[in-house]
Design a protein around this nucleic acid. Sequence first.
DNA 1: TGTTGAGTTCAACGCTAGTTGAATAGCTGA
DNA 2: TCAGCTATTCAACTAGCGTTGAACTCAACA
Lengths: 196, 196
Amino acid sequence: MTRTGRRSDGSDTRADLLTAAQREFYDRGYAGASIRGIAAGAGVDPALVYHYFADKQALFVAALRFPANPAEKLPQVLAGDPKELGIRLVGTVVSVWDSTESSPILTLLRSAVTNPAFADMLREFLIDAVLRPVLDSLVVQQRELRASLVASQLVGLAMARYVLRLPPLTTLGIDDVVQVIAPTVQRYLTGPLGAG
Amino acid sequence: MTRTGRRSDGSDTRADLLTAAQREFYDRGYAGASIRGIAAGAGVDPALVYHYFADKQALFVAALRFPANPAEKLPQVLAGDPKELGIRLVGTVVSVWDSTESSPILTLLRSAVTNPAFADMLREFLIDAVLRPVLDSLVVQQRELRASLVASQLVGLAMARYVLRLPPLTTLGIDDVVQVIAPTVQRYLTGPLGAG
DNA sequence: TGTTGAGTTCAACGCTAGTTGAATAGCTGA
DNA sequence: TCAGCTATTCAACTAGCGTTGAACTCAACA
């Protein structure tokens, strides 16, 4: 019964910690998740977390980026008729959100609400990594306003579908969600912003 | 230097506690706010909180309802041309949100993200107290879907304007916000929900 | 005037949290 | 084989939390 010391099996403890952290941060938010709980989820002593990560916040940031989930989907969103950009954007975003049990963006959304630093991270991700590229592909004015409007509808959709769990929006299939939300996003992207 | 015992001035400590609680819950969310911090904000010993309220959750609920902020604005939203219902709804909602430094709904929004019980409270408030009455005043189908769509855009607007502080949406005046958001809400309320 | 009850503080309990330093066990390369 | 690095655990520290019970002081009413 060896207690301390290195394990004999070739387990990847760092990855186990990141997976457990993802789950825990997603379920409970940044403040609600505990190092002890994450360590328990990975079957490991809490102190071990500090062997791999500087502190709780570093673990959070690392968990957000694991596995690498960059905007590599952007090209296929941008390709095609700009008149159907809203359809492709909403479809891609919702399918990414639906695809995993603990989407990093939803984790960040949960934590952004009570932590201004994470709100900054989310805002910068949304604007810099997603919406600016999309809008730069269009010939429109008022890009920043349009970007924030699209963000407002997408964030609201995430809140309604995953956090508040509003009955019809939560159970709708991806195609139905796209059908009702995409026209709004399309107007924010390319439509007139005055009276509609 | 009297330490314990009743105060001589006619101060309303209960109201002071509720005001401090509002501010603290708004700033930090339910879990992040502390009884000790709220008591300090009211210039009072933490134990005094338990003289007036059963526990932290009771204080939270009491702070949400203080001062009474029911949907007494509904009639003036419902009155008038249904074609401009979106304008009146968005205008009223944003002006309520902007009017106070710690709107109860925004507090609830902040806390709902990490606490399912508060998510239920917020959902029920939005649907039962605001959106069902509005939709019952219209002759439309798919009321529940329309309600959740309106909720998604309003919640997203709140997130963008007050939590994420997306630059243009945060600084826009109420009239400008209404101008860009109301058409979306109007379509969700009365427009076609298929391809737009 | 005396008594009661409401308002108020003090001190503490039990719990959980993030974090750290020392000790131990196994792997790797000389 | 052995030295040293890395992985791992143990035990503890400090700080903060919600909450409680007892004590004290004043105001109001009989």
